[in-house]
């Protein structure tokens, strides 16, 4: 009896977790403000600003653009871990692009 209750409990719990997560994702789609952790939101904002800076300096890499798009997509699904992961790549690739502007010119014939 007791174990059956546990079993039912587990099923309900599993369903609940799913339902909540599902709702979160749904809410994220309908709502303009997804349920992101403060940490993930901050990482995303930092990535967006780095990419904007690199764009302004005409030094943006396509890898930064696509990582930012992935981070934004993850944010819509409120997937904090993925937001952190992709936002970090976007920021890093954007700053590498800007640093490249200071690298010496190559193969000059004089």
């Amino acid at each position: 009896m007791n174990s059956r209750r546990i079993a039912i409990g587990l099923l309900v719990w599993g369903g609940l977790v799913m339902g909540t997560a599902g709702q979160g994702a749904l809410a994220a789609e309908g709502d303009s403000r997804p349920a992101l952790s403060a940490e993930a939101a901050e990482a995303l904002a930092r990535a967006e600003s780095s990419v904007a800076q690199a764009t302004a300096r005409k030094a943006l890499w396509t890898t930064a653009t696509s990582a930012l798009a992935q981070a934004q997509e993850a944010a819509r699904k409120a997937d904090n871990a993925a937001v952190m992961e992709y936002a970090a790549v976007a920021s890093e690739q954007a700053s590498r692009g800007m640093a490249q502007l200071d690298s010496p010119l190559t193969n000059q014939q004089h």
């Binding site: 079993a7 099923l11 977790v17």
Partner: peptide, 25 residues
Amino acid sequence: EKPIAIVTAASLSLLLAATFMSAAR
């Protein structure tokens, strides 16, 4: 039959969770 029920329920939960996770990623 009881432990089986637990295992079944638990794995169902996991399966559901896994499906959801893979859909998310």
